[in-house]
Write a protein that binds this DNA or RNA. Structure first.
Lengths: 159, 159
DNA sequence: GGCCCTGTACTCGGATAGTTATTGTCCGAGTCCTACTGG
DNA sequence: CCAGTAGGACTCGGACAATAACTATCCGAGTACAGGGCC
């Protein structure tokens, strides 16, 4: 899993603490966690293409959440950054070489047992991620440190 | 996930169809699925280090399962090939820069909410993989095509 | 005084290098079988 | 005829390149504001 996923999730949580009518430039988001600005911008672009954040150029421009934090799941963020391709790709080696000739044409009709097994595990992973929302994580942060949201908001309010 | 995981699982299933007192060279396993011999050998080495297969050099040498197929899980194989490191690595960016100064030293005592969320999902994935054994998959193959085990065994018996 | 226009500064977005991880290949160390030689 | 031994062939195992993916960076396109000029 790419490192940018971690950055993206933290940025989304931070944005959820900030008034939705206020856009935050990538440079500011990067400075908050001491990250490379240009590269974080790239990740935020990916979030923008997925509709998770909306972007705006020019002065007073920047990024803001594209929809309510209750409707943004970790699965959405992970898919936007990492791609939604399966981790386990069945390349169909059971059809290659002598193995394929043994199974015969009938083998093509039955699904690949190995692929199914990994798909089941991956589905469990996806379901779990799809259940966690940015709003939910923000609440957990608030519970651990009730003052955090205000502190974050104030820091980003400073010019 | 690395491609070698697929190869390794299929090889383990094939080995489970073959008499345990008979070793199969990597070249033969590779030929069965038309795979690059040397690279498959590399993957089998990794399985050997994990104890999933046992290896033997020289004539009549090769690989065989290191323990009963009921005791080899997909998690074991995936960990042997791909490594057992977490997919999501928490680099602790919440402690970097102004964010860390806002949270203060207290922030270091509370666990990272984001990391925990991803860990939960990954745990679900691991549990699911740990429940599937090579023996289980072999049974599924047998159910889909009862003649398959014999065909495989006979093919590998041919010199 | 109000409106329009131009210039400027700011921000995103995609095109461009550098670096790490993965894939693929090769040759040496070790082992077992086989055939030969000597008793 | 049997035992010991030397040779050869086979197989794994780790060291060595090629390729692809990820990470990082830069500059151009577009936008909104601000200041000045004109009506």
């Amino acid at each position: 899993m790419r490192e940018g996923v971690e950055w993206a999730v933290h940025c989304c949580i931070n944005l959820s603490f900030i008034s939705p009518d206020r856009a935050v430039p990538a440079a500011r988001l990067a400075a908050f966690h001491d990250l490379p600005t240009a590269y974080l911008n790239k990740q935020l672009n990916a979030l923008g293409r997925a509709g998770i954040v909306s972007s705006r150029s020019g002065p007073r421009g920047g990024f803001r959440l594209g929809r309510e934090p209750e409707k943004i799941t970790l699965m959405d963020v992970a898919a936007a950054i990492d791609g939604s391709a399966r981790a386990f790709l069945c390349t169909g080696i059971r059809h290659q070489g002598p193995a394929g000739r043994i199974a015969g044409p009938a083998g093509h009709r039955t699904p690949c047992t190995v692929s199914q097994a990994f798909s089941r595990a991956e589905l469990a992973w996806r379901r779990r991620l799809a259940r966690q929302t940015i709003a939910g994580l923000a609440d957990e942060v608030r519970r651990a440190n009730p003052a955090a949201p205000d502190h974050v908001r104030h820091w980003f309010d400073r010019t």
